[in-house]
């Protein structure tokens, strides 16, 4: 049994490879990433490893980040849009320990951003990489739980199940009842789960200048959207896609354009709204 790992002089964890994963694993993931970029929106199976964080905590995103990141990178990690949520703090610390990379909370300063459930409000630029943590990569899983069957449907490009679901929503309620993880078509060919981001964030994915990578650890799938690629939220001509947000302004920075968290302040219906993107909110306040 080896002694407890210590931080080596190079700034990474002794006893472990740079960025935790061994080189064989990184190579396997890197091959999967290149194929994922070559077939935008297609889920590439990969030999997901058991990570020292639980499945569901971002093991897919962590494996993608670990395979991509290098000593020159600056990493930002957000969960629910915020840098200071516990899991974001934990993952950022993990990479600071095992890769010794610089970290930041500023979207503009980051070269790699790992996220759970949000896309930053600050528009991303060329050269940045956005890594999404994905719980269920299969956009059809609520309609067809069998992986073998959904694979067949993707091969045929047969997305009738999803169109029928959206149509029935509209017929019954007057609108689509999906508010997050809203399915998108990538480059006009593959139906894709955008991960559980709010539908509000979907339009940011379309023709984004940054590279978008998606990692699902437990489900062992990787997929990607290259820069400047069409990402269209499914809709109908007479019922166009309408992303929602709370009809309020941020109590801290006053923004009326950003996605807001609702905070309950008392038990008499009192509430306030705050930017979910903490970096964006802080920048706005600093600019004032």
């Amino acid at each position: 049994m080896s002694a407890a790992p210590e931080v080596a002089s190079g700034g990474t964890l002794a006893g472990y490879n740079f960025a935790y994963l061994d080189e064989d694993t990184k190579r396997m993931i890197r091959r999967a990433l290149l194929k994922a970029v070559a077939v935008p929106g297609h889920q590439v199976p990969f030999g997901s490893r058991e990570m020292p964080l639980p499945y569901g905590w971002g093991t897919g995103g962590i494996q993608v980040t670990a395979s991509v990141i290098g000593p020159d990178d600056t990493l930002k990690v957000i969960d629910q849009g915020a840098d200071d949520t516990t899991n974001a703090v934990s993952i950022r610390r993990f990479f600071a320990r095992v890769a010794g990379v610089a970290t930041t909370e500023r979207t503009a300063d980051a070269t790699v951003i790992q996220t759970r459930h949000r896309i930053p409000e600050t528009p991303l630029r060329e050269g940045q990489i956005l890594v999404y943590q994905v719980p269920m990569p299969e956009p059809l899983f609520r309609l067809e739980p069998r992986v073998a069957e959904t694979r067949r449907l993707h091969a045929l490009g047969d997305y009738g199940l999803m169109h029928v679901k959206l149509y029935e929503d509209i017929a019954r309620r007057g609108e689509v009842e999906i508010s997050y993880n809203y399915p998108v078509m990538v480059n006009g060919r593959y139906l894709m789960s955008p991960s559980p981001i709010p539908a509000f964030d979907n339009p940011k994915m379309d023709r984004m200048p940054a590279l978008q990578l998606f990692g699902a650890g437990r489900e062992k799938r990787i997929y990607a959207v290259p820069p400047y690629t069409s990402v269209r939220s499914l809709d109908f001509e007479d019922h166009p896609f309408r992303p929602g947000r709370a009809d309020a302004s941020c109590a801290l920075c006053g923004s009326r354009e950003t996605y807001l968290d609702e905070v309950v302040t008392d038990d008499r219906g009192g509430r306030r709204f705050l930017c979910s993107d903490t970096d964006y909110c802080a920048e706005r306040r600093a600019d004032r």
Partner: peptide, 18 residues
């Protein structure tokens, strides 16, 4: 091996993405 492969991969990932 770790750093060089990472640097080469990023060049390839960037090339394949653009």
């Amino acid at each position: 091996p770790a750093t060089d492969a990472q640097g080469c991969f990023r060049a390839l990932l960037d090339a394949m993405s653009r």
